[in-house]
């Protein structure tokens, strides 16, 4: 299905948004491939199209032109249900503002994707505890998001993204709201998961702290890919 471990292929992709009577082109002529185990950042200034690209890869949005294939499925042709199934089974999301469910405890937030997957209680408990151990939050099982610090919230979000061991994790500005120490902790955790589980991480970021961890850096400007480079000495042997 996917040659050379290619999980994502993007060909001549463009995305337009209606503005007034016309259209604004947020992405233009994007051609990219992502392989298994990548730790890649999409960098660029605000408005360059990073989040749009991430949303399309995450099947939350569809391209206006071109073809985007994620795990062999063409995003533009997926029904709502199939897109939801793809996200549910294979994709993990980490958001800038954490997007934790406020009325759930830490445990329940992390457990949520597993409930959607229909895992039984025993499987869920084991997976949730493993994920929380990974991010070092086993002592906060019953806390609500409002009782946690920003760094802790993002660690819960990472645990939630990783609990189902997805093939791809999409992180939109995951460190933008965190201080340096928390940012490094989060990034180190993600890097560890990437190396141990071979999960593909794709970040949208303009945070220099993140850039230091990236193995591959894709630069966007005005919706176009202007540079796609491997970072030397970062596992690109």
């Amino acid at each position: 299905m996917m040659e050379n471990n290619q999980l994502i292929t993007i060909q001549n992709m463009a995305k337009d948004y209606p503005v007034g009577r016309g259209y604004f082109r947020a992405l233009n002529d994007v051609n990219l491939t992502f392989k298994r185990g990548e730790f890649t950042g999409i960098v660029g200034p605000s408005g360059s199209g990073k989040t749009t690209l991430l949303n399309i890869i995450g099947s939350l949005d569809v391209p206006s032109e071109g073809k985007t294939t994620v795990l062999g499925q063409s995003i533009g042709e997926l029904s709502h249900k199939k897109a939801a199934k793809l996200r549910n089974e294979h994709l993990g999301f980490i958001f800038q503002t954490y997007n934790l469910l406020p009325v759930y405890s830490v445990y329940e937030n992390v457990e949520f994707p597993l409930l959607l997957l229909g895992k039984n209680a025993e499987e869920r408990k084991k997976a949730v505890m493993d994920a929380l151990e990974w991010v070092g939050l086993t002592d906060k099982l019953k806390s609500r998001p409002a009782q946690l610090s920003g760094g802790e919230c993002q660690r819960v979000a990472v645990a939630r993204a990783m609990v189902k061991k997805p093939k791809i994790v999409l992180a939109d500005e995951p460190t933008a709201n965190l201080d340096a120490e928390n940012s490094h902790n989060i990034l180190q955790t993600m890097e560890k998961m990437n190396s141990e589980l071979k999960t593909t991480f794709i970040f949208a970021t303009h945070d220099d702290k993140v850039k230091k961890y990236l193995h591959r850096k894709i630069s966007l400007e005005d919706g176009r890919v202007v540079k796609d480079e491997l970072v030397e000495g970062m596992g690109n042997g």
Binding site: L60, R87, F93, L101, P113
Partner: peptide, 13 residues
């Protein structure tokens, strides 16, 4: 935001 997150995490509409 919660609805969006639910959808991102794999819930259908």
């Amino acid at each position: 935001k919660e609805i969006g997150t639910d959808i991102a995490l794999g819930m259908t509409r």
